[in-house]
Amino acid sequence: MRLLLVEDDDHVAAALSAVLARHGFDVTHARNGEEALRALLPTDRPPFGVVLLDLGLPDQDGYEVCGKIRKRSATPVIMVTARGDIRSRIHGLNLGADDYVVKPYDTGELLARIHAVSRRTNQEDSTGPIETRITLGDVHVELPTRTVTVLGEAVQLTRKEFDLLALLAQRPGVVFRREQIISEVWQTSWEGTGRTLEVHVASLRSKLRMPSLIETVRGVGYRLVAPAA
């Protein structure tokens, strides 16, 4: 995902960009509001998935920048600021910000919020028919009834096992980062959940009797490998 980081402090931007890059983001750094607005102009590159907007910019107030972004783009905006009072938060959200993170913040929480606003936007932008039945070789996943069958035989999954399978199955071949899976399935950024994720993946492989269905991408996360027809 492309991400626009609007931050006037080069040291802060460099450190945060390095963290985001390690988690698979393609980061563009803008040092002020004008650079940010120029970066959002249409190009032949894929659009930005999220804007991380610091409010303390040198050329114009971050709230003003947010208002301008919202007038020309539907790109999700997460405000990042030291202004933690409730009036500032309400003002930012009323201007069209999708979320508001107060400094100092936990990096895991920031990543979870990025995934959350991105997920909401993707759901809202989806105009195609919603797929309710997913076929993966001998495995059939029924999303409305939350049922799974293998060779016609029902497989009993826990709630989180089903949520994990459904998340991966709706985008076969796409690598989901561990942090993204934890954010979407467990709604948390707690690092200790990582071991729980590994246990659930192992359980799914065993219950579905298809160990190769869910592939581990070392150092990144997991993806579902759809069986050949």
Rank of each mutant, 00 (worst) to 15 (best):
residue 94 N to Q: 15
residue 121 T to K: 08
residue 148 V to M: 08
residue 131 E to R: 04
residue 38 R to M: 00
residue 134 I to M: 05
residue 109 E to L: 13
residue 101 V to I: 15
residue 114 I to C: 02
residue 133 R to C: 04
residue 32 N to D: 07
residue 103 K to V: 15
residue 165 L to H: 10
residue 95 L to G: 09
residue 124 E to I: 15
residue 115 H to Y: 12
residue 57 L to H: 02
residue 40 L to E: 04
residue 62 G to R: 14
residue 148 V to Q: 08
residue 140 H to R: 15
residue 41 L to F: 04
residue 35 E to S: 03
residue 135 T to Y: 06
residue 151 L to P: 10
residue 63 Y to C: 08
residue 29 H to C: 08
residue 166 A to T: 00
residue 102 V to N: 14
residue 105 Y to I: 15
residue 161 E to N: 13
residue 54 D to N: 06
residue 151 L to S: 10
residue 156 Q to M: 13
residue 86 I to G: 06
residue 111 L to S: 04
residue 34 E to G: 01
residue 170 Q to V: 03
residue 33 G to D: 02
residue 27 V to M: 03
residue 136 L to T: 01
residue 163 D to H: 13
residue 43 T to Q: 10
residue 23 H to E: 05
residue 55 L to Q: 07
residue 111 L to M: 10
residue 166 A to D: 03
residue 168 L to T: 11
residue 40 L to S: 04
residue 48 F to E: 05
residue 125 D to H: 12
residue 119 R to C: 05
residue 92 G to I: 11
residue 132 T to C: 00
residue 149 T to I: 05
residue 87 R to L: 00
residue 49 G to Q: 12
residue 167 L to I: 11
residue 161 E to K: 15
residue 134 I to D: 00
residue 132 T to L: 01
residue 73 S to F: 04
residue 42 P to R: 09
residue 132 T to S: 01
residue 90 I to P: 02
residue 170 Q to I: 00
residue 104 P to L: 12
residue 38 R to S: 00
residue 36 A to R: 02
residue 96 G to D: 05
residue 73 S to Y: 03
residue 147 T to V: 07
residue 119 R to V: 04
residue 139 V to N: 07
residue 44 D to W: 11
residue 119 R to P: 05
residue 164 L to T: 08
residue 53 L to A: 05
residue 110 L to T: 15
residue 146 R to C: 04
residue 140 H to P: 13
residue 75 T to I: 14
residue 127 T to Q: 01
residue 27 V to L: 10
residue 151 L to N: 07
residue 120 R to D: 03
residue 86 I to S: 11
residue 157 L to C: 10
residue 124 E to W: 15
residue 122 N to G: 05
residue 50 V to W: 07
residue 160 K to Y: 01
residue 29 H to G: 04
residue 69 I to P: 01
residue 52 L to N: 08
residue 144 P to R: 13
residue 121 T to N: 04
residue 164 L to D: 05
residue 111 L to C: 03
residue 81 T to F: 06
residue 112 A to V: 05
residue 143 L to W: 10
residue 148 V to K: 12
residue 122 N to Q: 06
